[in-house]
Simulated assay, not measured.
Amino acid sequence: MTALEETVKSIEQQTGWDGPPQLFALVETAELLKVQPELADQLGFEDGDGFTAVDQGELPDEDIGALLPGIVWPESVTGCALAMVRITLPPEVEEQIPDGEDAVAWAVAHPLHEELKIVVGVLRDGTRHAVLRIRRHEDELLSAEDLVPDLAEALSQTLLPDE
């Protein structure tokens, strides 16, 4: 298992089903411990391998696609990850979805809805990994490099040098 895959899975395990999306800066644990060695004992790090996910706080539960282009990370950030829960419906009920603010409440109440917990992580070198859990099947975790390619690409754009 790669360090990014391990980090993404760890974020998924630590985030719940309720609440707004959460954004994480991914920093190399070894670099973090050079700057703040006291964190090794406080956080129980046994070594400096892998990445440390630094929670950036909750994001507004709005259009993530519109929010991400405004985010730029400093060079000290090796990557980033986003955790969020989304509601999906089967294609056969899409025409029934009401317009406006009632759409989300309607979708949540619909008997065919599915809740998905998604975590996508990307690194500056182009490495990416995502996991997805369906609430009705909580004991199963889907895991792949390009599970949510559009979101991975949008997160990658936040890591590009500011021009």
Rank of each mutant, 00 (worst) to 15 (best):
Thr158Asp: 11
Val85Glu: 12
Glu75Asn: 05
Ile97Gly: 11
Leu116Gln: 12
Val122His: 09
Ile64Thr: 04
Glu163Leu: 13
Arg135Cys: 02
Gly16Glu: 08
Asp99Tyr: 03
Ala130Met: 04
Pro37Tyr: 03
Leu112Trp: 03
Leu147Ser: 05
Phe24Gly: 02
Pro161Tyr: 15
Gln96Thr: 14
Val85Phe: 12
Glu28Arg: 15
Val35Cys: 11
Glu5Gln: 15
Arg133Ser: 07
Gln96Pro: 00
Gln13Leu: 15
Thr78Leu: 08
Gly65Ala: 10
Arg86Leu: 07
Glu114Tyr: 00
Leu89Gly: 00
Val122Arg: 11
Thr15Asn: 05
Arg133Thr: 14
Val77Arg: 05
Leu59Gly: 15
Glu5Pro: 07
Ala3His: 15
Pro69Gln: 03
Thr15Tyr: 07
Glu31Gly: 01
Pro90Trp: 07
Ala109Ser: 04
Lys9Arg: 13
Gly44Leu: 01
Leu112Asn: 00
Phe51Ile: 12
Ala130Gln: 05
Leu32His: 02
His129Thr: 06
Glu31Phe: 03
Glu12Trp: 11
Thr158Ser: 13
Leu147Trp: 04
Glu12Ile: 06
Pro69Asp: 14
Thr52Phe: 08
Leu116Ser: 03
Asp150Lys: 15
Pro69His: 01
Glu12Asp: 08
Leu26Cys: 04
Gln56Val: 08
Gly121Pro: 09
Val72Ala: 15
Glu94Arg: 09
Pro69Ser: 07
Glu95Val: 09
Glu114Lys: 01
Leu39Met: 15
Ile118Leu: 11
Phe24Glu: 08
Leu112Gln: 02
Ala81Trp: 03
Leu123Pro: 01
Ala81Cys: 06
Ile118Asn: 06
Val120Met: 04
Val54Leu: 15
Ile11Val: 12
Ile97Met: 07
Met84Gln: 13
Ala105Pro: 00
Ala103Tyr: 01
Lys9Pro: 00
Glu62Asp: 03
Leu142Met: 13
Val131Asn: 11
Gln22Tyr: 10
Val119Ala: 12
Glu101Asp: 11
His113Tyr: 02
Arg124Ala: 13
Leu89Arg: 03
Asp139Gly: 06
Leu39Glu: 07
Leu67Cys: 01
Phe51Pro: 00
Phe45Thr: 04
Asp150Tyr: 05
Val72Asn: 03
Asp63Ser: 12
Asp61Lys: 10
Lys34Asp: 12
Val119Ile: 15
Ile87Ser: 09
Asp146Leu: 09
Thr78Tyr: 10
Glu12Val: 09
Gly100Ser: 06
Gln96Asp: 14
Asp63Glu: 12
Phe24His: 03
Leu32Cys: 11
Ala25Leu: 11
Asp139Tyr: 10
Pro69Trp: 01
Gln96Asn: 04
Gly48Trp: 13
Ala105Leu: 04
Pro20His: 02
Val35Gly: 09
Lys117Glu: 08
His137Glu: 14
Leu142Ser: 12
Gly79Gln: 11
Gln56Pro: 00
Ala109Gln: 00
Ala154Arg: 12
Ala144Gly: 15
Thr158Ile: 11
Glu153Gln: 12
Ile97Lys: 03
Trp106Tyr: 01
Val93Lys: 01
Ala53Met: 14
Gly126Leu: 04
Glu58Val: 13
Asp102Met: 00
Arg133Trp: 07
Val54Cys: 10
Ala83Met: 13
Gly57Leu: 07
Val120Cys: 05
Val72His: 06
